[in-house]
Design a protein around this nucleic acid. Sequence first.
DNA 1: CGAGTTTTTGACATTTTTCAAGCGTGGTGG
DNA 2: CCACCACGCTTGAAAAATGTCAAAAACTCG
Lengths: 234, 234
Amino acid sequence: MQTLWQFMRLHPIGATLSKNDWGNDDFLGVTAKIYKPHSEIGRQDDDNHEIFIVKSGWAILYHGLPDGERQIIDTPLTGDIVGFRSVDGPRLASLASITELTVYEISSKELVEAILSEGRLGKKIVCSLARLNAILAEHLMNTGRRTAMSRTAHFLLELEERLSMVGLSAHGRYECPLTQYDLADILGMTTVHVNRTLGELRRADLVSFKAGHVQVINRKKLVEIAGFDNEYLR
Amino acid sequence: MQTLWQFMRLHPIGATLSKNDWGNDDFLGVTAKIYKPHSEIGRQDDDNHEIFIVKSGWAILYHGLPDGERQIIDTPLTGDIVGFRSVDGPRLASLASITELTVYEISSKELVEAILSEGRLGKKIVCSLARLNAILAEHLMNTGRRTAMSRTAHFLLELEERLSMVGLSAHGRYECPLTQYDLADILGMTTVHVNRTLGELRRADLVSFKAGHVQVINRKKLVEIAGFDNEYLR
DNA sequence: CGAGTTTTTGACATTTTTCAAGCGTGGTGG
DNA sequence: CCACCACGCTTGAAAAATGTCAAAAACTCG
């Protein structure tokens, strides 16, 4: 069985952590939990202070609005941390699996304890949160200042970059189990419009999103349309 | 002269820090720098690894897009930290003052060093970043899933809440030096539309934004229209 | 095969942007 | 003191982008 620290050494947020960075083995020994596709891992407004670290699979972190709308905040991928809050309080967003999902679950309190006693862990978490910040800021530009086309192109390029960082994309090709409904709630548009936009991108031979997989066709032009610069994902 | 740690004890991110949380006094003695209104404090793409902590004044953190558009990522207020990056690399956004602005400037490297040796500082920074994350996520809902009206209302309520936390708002009233152009770049719409929307809000006796100050008139209804829940600002 | 989900398409409505112009105010130089 | 300019605010009319509603086609899974 792979322990949490073994995992973290291999992935973005834990890449340089040594065993000693964690207080003791018990804490490290957190076992990964496996969830079925389309299950709720944590629900918005629940008073359950747990942090998740994605080991494998696809998930969405979303917030439901009073009027029934939904905005997807992020699609956490392998190695991403989910669920930090500045203070105790209800969860601000729900986490749901898309595919089968494996996550490490750590009590928020325990993780904070560990940060207090181990500076290197604090640094790691700070870096991880800073990166999430950068991603959110970029999504803000997407929904705020880019056209439907540019937005969609940008997100597909972001996914490719993030996935290839964890070895899940190569040659501009990757699996993506998100539906067009999901895409709509990520990009802040309607499914109908997502559909038309994807169609345009496909017909223009830029990128194809079809049957759960994505293939970048003309990267140069796609990057140009999207105004994509991967710097923020470093 | 007020030192950085004296300041931090009094404001959100540093509220519970004691003197010992910082390695030594030299580091703490960082003097605050004062900038004139409308100056650039840090420029996007610069390779200058500095973190800013706002002591007083209004600022905007924005990112310029290739086509000349601009998206304002955040309006850092008293006590907010600006400029963290996951790794060294060019700055992702520019920081500019709106009013006269006083900021503490700390080298990124120094702060990371301090985190390594002082867990409580790490915790504070982690909390601050988690809060910023929550704010960005909420802005994402704003631009992604709310109408112009709801969005604008929401942002004005957020400002009120954030300002009253640092003693700069009371009775639903506060000073706000942002222009309608700024508002447009925050909310992801055009100035023209911002103008019309503010007009509507004013005519409906919900909130007035005029000559640099904001007055909430009918909070109950405004909160309802905005779908505002201050939980995320805690 | 059949039921449910997802994608695609068409016609039309609404929101938001664009372009263009006018107004008000505060500061500045003649 | 006044003319003038820069800047921000306001308004109107038309265009473009995006959303809504509705239905059909395609796909998926048991």
